[in-house]
């Protein structure tokens, strides 16, 4: 039994401690945002945040997560009330097939949380591990920049929505 905190909620997980986090999220908790891509930590579609850092959930065993804070794309907002990252991806229509997008959003979120004014160069370097086979990189780039400015606007006085608060 492992105690796991996902998007602010604690769960007691029955799975064996060496189970990859991705399997727990999808199969036990029904959080299907993080995707199975390669299973080898090479494509980034399974990316989630652990204590604010982007990690590949497919190669992260459950036993490393005791007492740590996991955030998935579901934790960034809801359909009714999307967070700034999600809002930006909708506004820029940054998805084609969409399989890589939750991972893209989570890696970008990890960057913008610590550095909301990240430069193009910093965004490119940071996003390098995540792959998109459709080739929507330019729109993803635009969405991340838009998310950055949405976050900065929110931080500069506008009443933050519940979603942005959760997103940190």
């Amino acid at each position: 039994m492992v105690a796991l905190t996902v998007n602010g909620q604690s769960h007691q997980i029955e799975a064996s401690p060496d189970t990859p986090l991705l399997y727990v999220l999808r199969d036990e908790l029904g959080l299907n945002g993080a995707k199975y891509g390669c299973g080898l930590g090479q494509c980034g579609s399974c990316t989630v945040m652990v204590d604010g850092e982007a990690v590949f959930s497919c190669v992260t065993p459950l036993l490393l997560l005791e007492g740590r804070e996991v955030t998935t794309v579901e934790g960034l907002g809801t359909i009714e009330n999307p967070g700034p990252m999600q809002q930006a991806f909708i506004e820029e229509q940054a998805a084609q097939c969409g399989y890589c997008i939750p991972g893209m959003m989570m890696r970008a979120q990890a960057l913008l949380q610590s550095n909301p004014g990240a430069s193009d160069e910093e965004i490119r370097a940071h996003m390098e591990p995540n792959l998109c086979r459709c080739g929507t990189h330019m729109r993803i780039m635009a969405a991340i920049k838009r998310a950055g400015s949405l976050m900065q606007t929110a931080a500069n006085g506008a009443a933050p929505s519940g979603a942005t608060e959760r997103a940190g």
């Binding site: 401690p17 060496d18 189970t19 990859p20 299973g39 080898l40 930590g41 497919c58 190669v59 992260t60 065993p61 459950l62 036993l63 490393l64």
Partner: peptide, 19 residues
């Protein structure tokens, strides 16, 4: 499957072994 109860073995099984 991890070969023992050792924490290192479990991390290896879940994080390293697939490659």
């Amino acid at each position: 499957a991890a070969t023992s109860e050792d924490r290192g073995a479990k991390i290896y099984a879940a994080a390293c072994s697939s490659c």
